[in-house]
């Protein structure tokens, strides 16, 4: 963005991409895909002490059509996987995904017949947050990192992101 200081006027010049991304970055609407322990820490992150609204992301939407940041908070089982896939598909582009905690990132210490070994087997993931469960500070940090990523992206959403990571 640029402001012409020598000839004061009521307009500023910028790139369209930057202006749009600036808006997107500070108005992420999270969809908590809360399934397990991490969802409880997500609730702590939203509550007044940690206050996620400091980052412009307090408008929690449970409808995928109204949200652009999916936070997978908890263990994804094989039974849950098709549901996760459907909900991700229902979100409008552009959209981002945070895998909160080790279960969503890699299955965690549940290496067994029922647990999907990471949500990225089903949908693309932008940010992995360590911890079991991660502390609210940790989750907020990942939100800031997502904001940095949003700033750098192009205007037109690509149809498939991270094609190499998407499983069958």
């Amino acid at each position: 963005m640029a402001v012409d200081l020598e000839q004061p006027s009521n307009f500023i010049t910028t790139r369209l991409r930057q202006a749009v991304n600036w808006g997107r970055k500070y108005s992420l609407w999270p969809l908590p895909f809360g399934v397990a322990c991490c969802a409880i820490e997500f609730m702590s992150t939203v509550s007044s002490y940690n206050d996620i609204s400091r980052f412009g992301a307090e408008l929690v939407r449970f409808s995928p059509r109204q949200s652009d940041l999916m936070i997978i908070a908890g263990t994804i089982s094989y039974k849950q996987a098709p549901v996760l896939k459907t909900i991700y598909a229902q979100m409008a582009e552009p959209k981002w995904v945070i895998a909160m905690g080790v279960c969503a990132s890699s299955g965690g210490f549940y290496n067994n017949y029922s647990t999907l070994q990471g949500a990225d087997h089903v949908i693309p993931v932008d940010m992995y947050v360590a911890g079991c469960p991660p502390t609210p500070e940790n989750l907020l940090h990942s939100l800031v990192l997502i904001q940095e990523q949003v700033e750098k992206e192009g205007l037109v959403p690509s149809t498939v992101r991270h094609p190499d990571r998407v499983g069958a």
């Binding site: 399934v35 397990a36 908890g74 263990t75 089982s77 039974k79 849950q80 549901v83 549940y110 067994n112 017949y113 029922s114 647990t115």
Partner: peptide
């Protein structure tokens, strides 16, 4: 069963 994490196994 959506979050069956096989505690017993």
């Amino acid at each position: 069963g959506y979050i069956h994490r096989c505690f017993e196994k």
